[in-house]
Amino acid sequence: MPVIRRTTMGIPLAVVAALTAALQPTSAATADVRTSPEPLGGHRSRPAPPTVAPTTTIVPTAVSAPATYTVVSGDTVSAIAGRFGLEVAAVLTANGLQWSSVIYPGQSLVLGGAAESSPAPAPAPAPTEKPAERAYEVVAGDTLIGIAKKHGTTVSSILETNGLTRSSIIYPGQTIAIPGEAAAPVPAPAPEPVPSPAPTAETTPLTSEMRSNAAVIVAVGRSLGVDEQGLVVALAAAMQESGLRNLDHGHADSLGIFQQRPSQGWGSPEQIQDATYSSTAFFVGVRGKTLGLLDVSGWRDMSVTEAAQAVQISAYPDAYAKWEQSARSWLAEL
């Protein structure tokens, strides 16, 4: 245009070219290329490859195995062994388990001994040592008394070996330890058995209180797998001791339907006056303190009065015989 020509006229051409170049945008990359010095030989140098930080592999530190471990819901033996870097076979061996054994929440497993890869063999037991325990898997229909009979031991010994109480429940698939020969104290040899007196024809009728207590004795006995003969022994013993009444008094500190004494290890006064507790104690004893009927070796071959006396240790050992006929009649009623 005439104005531009008029404006640029008189300005040297070199100045115009310089202003035009200055007003054009220049990228940083272009500037870098223009200002970078050319290497010798006329070839542009290649940029250095990016630096890659070395990869560090983190190896998890193995968690040391505790001495014992309490099983929680969802646990398996293999998972527990893997968690603590142990061999599954070592954990099974340390706890007397088999590959088919089932663990359950709350069960305590020994892990400390399982960490040893090749434990030294245990020395052969001396002839006087207690026989080794055996593992047994509970099946449907099992009871503690039935298991004890099957393996020639006592209910008290099984409870003590497995850390169970009389209120514990066993279930199919559970593995329990069966002790060797019972370590319970052996009572002194009984005198030559005397034939039980002939039963009387008369039967003592049950009052409502007597019937209620007799029903508890029978229910507890049946829950423990006690047969009819054992129930008759218990009913005869309770009738002789208390008249089948739950007494709050008796000779010395005797209490309850079986007149059991707290001072002799049968339990606290409150426990003994609980008919269910005292009936259970009559059949299976109190662990480590008293023997129950099922702990008495050969009680089924004894007369009713002898079997009752083996548990009650009464000053009148023949007094139970007179209640045998009534006890059989009550059992039939109940």
Rank of each mutant, 00 (worst) to 15 (best):
P2L: 13
I11K: 11
P12F: 11
L19H: 03
A21C: 08
A22L: 09
P25C: 03
A28K: 11
A28G: 11
A28C: 08
A31R: 02
T35W: 06
P37M: 09
P39D: 11
S45H: 09
P49H: 13
P49W: 13
P50G: 12
V52Q: 14
V52A: 10
V52K: 12
A53T: 14
T57W: 07
P60V: 08
V63S: 15
A67M: 13
A67G: 14
T68L: 08
T70L: 14
V72D: 14
T76F: 04
L86H: 02
A89H: 13
L92N: 10
G96N: 15
L97T: 09
Q98D: 15
V102N: 11
Y104S: 15
Y104I: 14
G106D: 10
Q107H: 07
G112R: 08
G113Q: 09
A114G: 09
E116K: 05
P119V: 06
P119H: 06
A126Y: 08
P127D: 11
K130A: 14
A135N: 09
A135K: 01
V138S: 15
V139I: 10
K149Y: 10
T153L: 13
T153H: 09
T161G: 04
R166C: 04
S168H: 09
I170Y: 05
I170E: 03
Y171W: 15
P172G: 05
T175Y: 05
I176W: 04
I178T: 05
A182G: 12
P185N: 02
P189N: 06
P189G: 04
A190G: 04
A198K: 09
P199C: 03
A201W: 00
T203E: 13
L206F: 03
S212W: 01
N213P: 07
A214C: 02
V216W: 06
V216D: 04
V218Q: 04
S223V: 05
G225W: 06
V226Q: 09
L235R: 00
E241N: 01
L244R: 03
G250C: 01
D253R: 11
S254Y: 15
L255S: 07
I257A: 02
R261E: 01
G265P: 07
I272L: 15
T280A: 10
G292L: 01
D295K: 05
D295F: 06
D295S: 15
G298P: 03
R300Y: 01
R300T: 07
M302K: 01
V304E: 00
A307K: 02
A308T: 02
A308V: 00
A308K: 03
I313M: 12
A315H: 11
A315V: 11
K322H: 01
E324P: 00
A327W: 04
S329T: 06
W330P: 00
A332G: 11
L334C: 00
L334E: 01
